[in-house]
């Protein structure tokens, strides 16, 4: 049963990676979605292209580009830094699209009513459309957070000492892979479950607080 203890050593790193990258993604996603919805077509297209490219290359490839690629002579990051940068930036691209789908999901009557009341663009976004779009986007954001929590395991490939790192190491040493990965898997399931449940009930409750026309 020492596996339970050994793999638990990785939990703080798994959580750290998840929470910090998500915070970076949630923050950087906001200016990104503003650019994505810019009034200038060139900026819109350019931002869309950048978002698609960030999302279109697997995270593990980005991780290797930053850690091994840039690390060989350009900028040497620690494994943890490289993992946070990569997961943070890819999260920003995903979060921008999640915010955007929230804004698209809002009935156009909201924009029209705000304009009819003489609110300027910033005030409309801040007081009318922004808060409602966030409510639409929040369940998707929680779903993304859950995916990020699981995907943070790729960081083990560059040596971040999160859960899978210990699972891999213990399997190499003891050859009891089914038990070791079973325990790691149980940790992922147990910690992910509350988020999954939260996401479902959030969706129901928040939808009730969005205008229907």
């Amino acid at each position: 049963m020492r596996f339970i203890v050994i793999i638990a050593r990785g939990i703080p790193y798994t959580l750290l990676l998840t929470v910090v990258s998500f915070a970076i993604g949630a923050a950087l996603g906001l200016p990104l979605v503003a650019l994505r919805r810019s009034r200038y077509a060139v900026i819109r297209a350019l931002t869309a292209l950048i978002i698609e490219i960030v999302r279109g290359v697997p995270v593990i490839v980005w991780l290797f580009v930053v850690y091994f690629g840039l690390g060989a002579g350009v900028i040497a990051f620690t494994p943890l830094e490289a993992a946070i940068i990569v997961l943070g930036v890819t999260s920003a691209a995903y979060m921008a699209e999640i915010y955007r789908s929230g804004m698209i999901g809002l009935p156009s009557g909201q924009y029209e009513a705000a304009a009819a009341l003489g609110l300027n663009h910033m005030t409309t976004v801040r007081l009318v459309t922004g808060p409602q779009a966030l409510r639409i986007a929040l369940p998707s954001a929680v779903t993304y957070l859950l995916a990020l929590f699981k995907n943070s395991s790729v960081a083990y490939t560059i040596g971040v000492t999160e859960m899978l790192f210990w699972a891999f190491k213990e399997t190499e040493e003891t050859l009891q892979g089914v038990l070791v990965y079973g325990i790691a898997g149980a940790y992922y399931l147990l910690m992910g479950l509350p988020l999954a449940v939260a996401s479902r009930s959030l969706d129901r409750r928040l939808r009730a607080r969005v205008a229907t026309q």
Partner: peptide, 9 residues
């Protein structure tokens, strides 16, 4: 609920 890495490995 499991990371694909866990499933693969």
């Amino acid at each position: 609920g499991l990371p694909w890495l866990v499933l693969l490995q």
